[in-house]
């Protein structure tokens, strides 16, 4: 830095302390290093699991039934169980979450009632998954007599996903330009007609992204599921049967040291599933931002 540039005066202290160096060189290096480290950790985790798990990923592993508590054989029932459980929880949570968001953005103005709803949603978002697990166990498994089942697990997961879906849906509904609503109302459309034919269609991509992201979190959830969906290794015949989802199976294999190799394989399947879901979400979002930029809105 040249002394005449005047920047020395702006942050005189900094310069005085290290007269020979550009101010912030160490800081910049640290900032760069932390970004690098963060990405390195991510790449390491995904790479590590995929590389160690790849060896096990055979059709027999993916489509076979577990033998000897999972020491041998495959993980087919867990794949099916995870898929059904996650889909069902999305099917329950999505209408409720989107409905709540529509209610908050289109049907009420800021007031006591909307504050209560928002408080409920935000508080729910902060509750740890283990508490959801406890609640699901007490309420769905025992009180409502659903037992350890896909249904109990899905309802618990749905409660957990609700805040995410509400928040992302609300954001995308609010980003729909208000002039769309005015236009529809000015043409004599009712509120419900305006919401369903103009507002919701414009917000769909953002809503879908939010739902997919919530689904990604649900796929990997363990603590809330283990006490509500059980840990049965059998292939579920209906939603009233218990299942052992992939993360639960993985947890049991790894923690009880049953088979490290199959644990890696299960983790790899889990990570691939989560990555696919995430990519689907970003793909949807990306397509939207592209369309938005074309219309200049």
């Amino acid at each position: 830095m040249t002394p005449s540039s005047g920047s020395g005066r702006v942050s005189g202290l900094d310069v005085a302390r290290r007269p020979e160096r550009k101010p912030g060189r160490l800081g910049m290096a640290l900032v760069r290093a932390s970004a690098f480290l963060t990405v390195a950790v991510l790449v390491f985790i995904i790479g590590y699991v995929l590389v160690r798990g790849a060896r096990v990923l055979t059709p027999r592993f993916l489509l076979g039934f577990p033998e000897k508590m999972g020491r041998e054989g495959g993980i087919y029932p867990s794949i099916v169980g995870t898929f059904v459980l996650t889909s069902l929880s999305v099917a329950i949570a999505a209408p409720l979450g989107i409905g709540t968001a529509v209610f908050l953005t289109e049907y009420t103005s800021e007031g006591l009632f909307s504050r209560i709803v928002r408080f409920g949603t935000e508080s729910l978002a902060g509750i740890p998954s283990i508490i959801f697990g406890l609640f699901g166990f007490l309420f769905f498994v025992i009180r409502l007599g659903m037992g350890w089942s896909i249904l109990s697990g899905s309802l618990t997961l749905a409660a957990m996903m609700l805040p995410t879906i509400v928040r992302t849906s609300e954001e995308s509904l609010r980003s729909v330009p208000d002039i769309y609503r005015e236009t529809a109302y000015a043409l004599g459309a009712s509120r419900w007609q305006t919401v369903t034919s103009v507002v919701l269609p414009s917000a769909v991509p953002g809503i879908v992204t939010g739902v997919i992201l919530a689904m990604g979190r649900a796929v990997g959830e363990t603590a809330a599921v283990i006490f509500t969906a059980g840990s049965s290794l059998r292939l579920p015949g209906s939603i009233f049967d218990p299942v052992r989802t992939l993360p639960v199976h993985f947890y049991i294999l790894a923690r009880e040291g049953i088979s490290l190799e199959n644990a890696y394989g299960t983790a790899a399947v889990l990570i691939i599933a989560v990555l696919l879901v995430d990519f689907a979400a970003y793909y949807t979002l990306h397509r939207v931002s592209k369309r938005r930029s074309v219309t200049g809105r």
């Binding site: 236009t183 000015a186 043409l187 103009v198 269609p201 414009s202």
Partner: peptide, 12 residues
């Protein structure tokens, strides 16, 4: 009926 300042093509 009303026409607004900015043209508003509904997304359809």
């Amino acid at each position: 009926g009303m026409v607004f300042a900015l043209p508003v093509p509904l997304p359809m």
